[in-house]
Amino acid sequence: MAQEVNSASPIEMIRIVDLEKYFAKLHVLKGITTTIHKGQVVSVIGPSGGGKSTFLRCMNRLEEPSSGSIFIENVDITDHRIDINKIRTDIGMVFQDYNLFPHLTAIQNVMLAPVHVRRVKPKEAEEHGMELLKRVGVTDKAKEYPFNLSGGQQQRVAIARSLAMRPKIMFFDEPTSALDPEMIREVLDVMQTLAESGMTMVVVSHELGFIREASNRVMILVDGKIIEEGTPDEVFNTPQNQRTKDFLSKIL
């Protein structure tokens, strides 16, 4: 298991109060309240269509929450007077389909946002970018276009691209679901190392091995509600809620 959060004085990173989200009449998130502390690695699991992606996307306002508040480091990001672009630079997001920019090479993908958003000098951004590519193990592909990379390599570059903004929080939305089985491991390894380095992470994933190894908290999100949460051991070994048991029996 990743390093335990310093339980003496946990620093609050994300606090969510009564988050609700409607798509027109469709009620997708039905009141979510939770707090995530610095250095925590939270795994979110639940049946498809339960609102996991929407939950993540509300937390950096790729989707507008319908009601409720989301505090990132005590700033309410649902307040429309804040600059959401500024907040997003602190939150990395990795998507299921990698979404690398196909017209740029791997290293250019990684450098783009630091140079144009953070105004880092290109040379510095490149150095940092190469360092990150080394960390995710694709240095040799730095000058390649996404088209020439395998799915696993693309996803690792996508992780490096997010890390290049030096985020404080990382969201992962099913980062290995689109990958061939033999490439899942390489991406999970990168995520595990990141978790061990103390990054605050929220991961939507059904990779049970990873969840047990790397995360210190599991949330079960069913039908727009968190029906159960706790450490992986608690949730997997002694689930309390009947619907949790039903769901786990399908995936375990």
């Binding site: 950096n60 672009n85 500024k86 990395g92 997001m93 998507f95 979404n99 920019f101 946002a113 958003v117």
Partner: peptide, 11 residues
């Protein structure tokens, strides 16, 4: 998706 990942980076 391209726009979304750009926006997620703070653009």
């Amino acid at each position: 998706n391209q726009v979304e990942s750009a926006r997620a980076l703070g653009m």
